[in-house]
């Protein structure tokens, strides 16, 4: 399984010259672009001097998350060959995608830890919790992808729908823009958006060296529990129909 997920990561860039290193280079380039854009071109001091950092800390895990959703919901169609003739549990294919994206998220988090000091920002010991949040975040995307993977086989339109929903979704919470522009009374409602609690925790850990409060942990656990249960239920209920259709 691990070998498989590792292979999957390599396979995404199969045939390219430096293969797996694209996984590191592309986020790195993105960090550089944001840094240049925000610190030189828009010298507007938002969120202190760390706006590019603030942006990247949420954006890279978010990218890992959406990549899991997009690839995970497509996992059944991609592996239709196996699902059509082998009696292996279908969730394995979504799991494989999730695991591959987890590696990616860890690479992103590693990059974030490496570049934070370059912005003149100190790191506290609480960053050790980053991998835990990263893992939980992928747990959330696993649950969502598992449900979507089943539904996408029965309703192929979902693939197209996701393509415009995901960019829209990223604007429903403060990823690109600072949370300070949102009126205070709306702030608690942001947690109703499942990924928000995770993204906020990443920022708290890196920028403020602050362990998320208990209620945020509870929200995180609650969302994971709900979506993993939801994904598993959908998967179980629709399994037979999915196999018939695929």
């Amino acid at each position: 399984m691990f070998y498989n997920a590792w292979y999957e990561l390599r396979y995404r860039y199969a045939g390219t010259g430096i293969g797996i290193f694209w996984n590191v280079i592309s986020p790195l380039l993105e960090i550089i672009i944001y840094t240049v854009v925000f610190s030189l071109l828009i010298p507007n001091k938002m969120e202190g001097n760390y706006y590019p950092l603030y942006l990247v800390i949420a954006l890279l895990p978010w990218r890992g998350f959406t990549e899991t959703i997009v690839q995970g919901s497509d996992a059944f169609s991609k592996n239709a060959i196996y699902l059509r003739r082998l009696a292996i549990p279908s969730e394995i294919f979504v799991g494989k995608v999730t695991l591959a994206s987890l590696f990616l998220v860890y690479i992103y988090l590693g990059l974030i830890i490496l570049i934070t000091p370059l912005f003149g920002k100190g790191l506290g010991w609480n960053i050790l919790l980053l991998p835990v949040i990263g893992l939980l975040f992928q747990g959330l995307s696993f649950g969502m992808s598992l449900a979507l993977a089943n539904l996408q086989i029965l309703f192929p339109d979902i693939k197209q729908i996701l393509q415009f929903i995901i960019p829209l979704w990223s604007w429903t919470m403060p990823i690109y823009y600072p949370s300070s522009i949102i009126p205070d009374r709306f702030l608690p409602w942001l947690y109703a958006n499942p990924p928000y609690a995770f993204l906020k925790s990443f920022r708290d850990l890196v920028l403020e060296d602050k362990i998320p409060e208990l209620n945020i942990w509870l929200i995180i656990i609650g969302w994971i529990a709900f979506f993993v249960w939801f994904g598993a239920t959908i998967n179980e209920k629709l399994q037979s129909e999915v196999r018939d259709k695929i």
Binding site: R84, R85, A87, R243
Partner: peptide, 9 residues
Amino acid sequence: LKVITGVLQ
């Protein structure tokens, strides 16, 4: 065969 191998219910 698919039913026998457990692929289809």
